[in-house]
């Protein structure tokens, strides 16, 4: 009797163990074969970059997780430094693994393509509403006579997590040394006049209005007239949209500071970023205000 029960337990136990082992083996085999048969060739660099990333899947880069970001980095769509959670070491490790320059070749900065501060461009009406560009846009398109120019109500300043944008004389100006190129301001600006440009480009056309020159001249002192002087003096570095020039940021060569001297833009809307900043900062209004601020401090 005892022996009988024991043998029965033994067979059940034996069958169970063998069965489990068999099923495990079979499943492992199937998965192995299927993985071989249905192998998808993926770029091994994607996996490499993914392993270097923080893998927190925070979505801060605007992509669906770290793997997706790695894919975009390998494809060259975004720079490794676009990951807000990565330290500088991580970024340079990724750049090194991919054989690209960490920041110089890819870094982008934002630039507000408008030179019409409150003294240069007229307002066609008064605006007493909430001081926010998007609110102002909702009411007859805002108070500025130029319907493409900067409204100067600091929506982008509030959007910038790095404090890189400042309103000077009613005009938003990006301090490019603080800008990391996250693009938050680009998404915020209701007039779509902030652009991410390669950090290497120093010269920009500070006008975003595609209308004809004489029409712009009526309300703005510093519009792009569409005279094509820049294109003639520095061919291949500009392109035209409507009647205004844009620096061709995709071109191999970007306009240099020397080009500025030969072009001599008649309305001074083609400027280097430094000049643009200097013009606004040296404006008497601004100087008065900042000295008053310094005194009060």
């Amino acid at each position: 009797m005892m022996c009988n029960i024991l043998s029965q337990i033994d067979t059940s136990l034996l069958v169970a163990v063998v069965l489990m082992a068999l099923i495990g083996l079979l499943l492992g085999l199937i998965i192995g074969i299927v993985a071989k048969l249905f192998k998808v060739e993926t770029d091994p660099r994607i996996e490499l970059v993914t392993s270097l990333l923080p893998n927190a899947n925070c979505g801060g880069c605007g992509r669906a997780g770290c793997a997706d970001f790695a894919k975009a980095v390998v494809a060259g769509e975004v720079a490794p430094n676009q990951c807000p959670a990565s330290s500088q070491e991580t970024v340079s490790a990724i750049a090194k693994a991919l054989g690209i320059e960490a920041s110089t070749s890819f870094k982008k900065v934002a630039v507000v393509l408008c030179g019409g501060d409150k003294n240069q461009t007229k307002n066609w009406t008064l605006y007493n509403g909430v001081s926010d560009c998007r609110s102002a846009m909702l009411i007859a398109g805002g108070p500025k006579a130029c319907s493409y120019g900067c409204l100067g109500m600091a929506s982008c300043v509030r959007a910038c997590p790095f404090g890189a944008i400042e309103i000077i004389n009613g005009l938003a100006i990006v301090h490019s040394e603080k800008c990391v190129g996250c693009g938050k301001c680009v998404a915020t600006c209701p007039r779509k006049l902030i652009k991410l440009v390669p950090a290497g480009s120093k010269v920009h056309v500070y006008c975003n209005n595609p209308e004809k020159g004489p029409a712009k001249k009526k309300y703005c002192n510093v519009p792009c007239l569409g005279c094509r002087k820049c294109d003639k003096n520095a061919p291949g570095k500009f392109k035209f949209e409507g009647f205004h020039a844009i620096v061709d940021y995709e071109a191999a060569e970007q306009p240099t500071l020397q080009d500025l001297d030969t072009i001599k833009c008649p309305t001074n809307c083609l400027l280097s970023a430094q000049e643009h900043l200097a013009i606004e900062e040296n404006n008497p209004d601004h100087l008065e205000k900042s000295s008053a601020n310094a005194e009060s401090k």
Partner: peptide
């Protein structure tokens, strides 16, 4: 006389 019913859970998970 072999009853494998007790393996149900573990086999289901595996499968």
């Amino acid at each position: 006389g072999i009853n494998l019913g007790f393996l149900q859970l573990i086999i289901f998970i595996l499968i």
